[in-house]
Design a protein around this nucleic acid. Sequence first.
DNA 1: GTCATTGCAAATGGTTTGCATTGTA
DNA 2: TACAATGCAAACCATTTGCAATGAC
Lengths: 164, 164
Amino acid sequence: MRRRTHPPRGPRLASGTVAPVTDRVDELLEQLRARGDRVTTARRAVLVELLEAEGRHLSAEELVERIGPKHPDIHLSTVYRTLEFLRLAGIIVQVRVDRDAAAYHVADHGHHHAVCATCGAMIEFPDQVLRSLVNRLARDHGFVAEPRHLVIDGRCAACAAADN
Amino acid sequence: MRRRTHPPRGPRLASGTVAPVTDRVDELLEQLRARGDRVTTARRAVLVELLEAEGRHLSAEELVERIGPKHPDIHLSTVYRTLEFLRLAGIIVQVRVDRDAAAYHVADHGHHHAVCATCGAMIEFPDQVLRSLVNRLARDHGFVAEPRHLVIDGRCAACAAADN
DNA sequence: GTCATTGCAAATGGTTTGCATTGTA
DNA sequence: TACAATGCAAACCATTTGCAATGAC
């Protein structure tokens, strides 16, 4: 609620690629240093993978798998601790669907998910779709909603059409 | 999605109490019989407790504790299976907050929760607060939202005031 | 009588924790 | 150097599952 930054994915380069993930990682790690937190191999590695996933959510397990080749010594429990740390630091967001393993993504752009109860499809929708809900909670209950990640269930267009 | 029933809590009696829980239980069990499903002691017991909790959500563990005195032989695993069965039947709704044990309540009145990230307070709000969100998902994505229970985080009025 | 449901015990699987060691500042 | 962060192994705990016994229709 103090963060007003809304950093774009990064400046586009001629090739159509974006500024190296490393830059963004360094930027985030700098935030940690500024807070007086330590910058470690594990923290950097986790951020690199999350950023390279480009919005795809990754679980702790998936992260160790991806980190493995580069840092075979980074343990699953460390990844869990790192994720919790980054979450508390407000740098990443945790996503829960059902009882599946929690997944994480960088907190850049607020977004939410609608999950199809029939086929499991997940569609993403932006923060602003929640605006009226947020306003109403504020008006009616004085509740200051800060939806970091919300999951709503129902049926995707295809399954709704298929009826059944 | 075929259920259009919106049974009131039960007819008010002169005393201000409502029709006995048993009536409501029988009504629900009748739904099962109609579907060709079996009515068992465990299913009745679980429904009785959920109805007697009057809206308070109960976990599987809490349910066995409450059922214990009357039916010491109803096992935790049976309660889990029963809850899953009733959920699929559309009779109860499962509620998840964080990694806590899942909790359940009868599917009577749709409602949702706003959870305070600071003090943990939960405020309840009715289905209709989600109307514009639901409409928008339908319009923009063809997604037919059927929010059975949604959890949104933020700060309750008190904690928001305390700022910090 | 038949087949779903249950009791029980054991397995699962994601996540957490205790502790000695390592690495950052 | 000092103290936070990590590796590892073991613990946790809600939930699930296999199987034989039981109960509903």
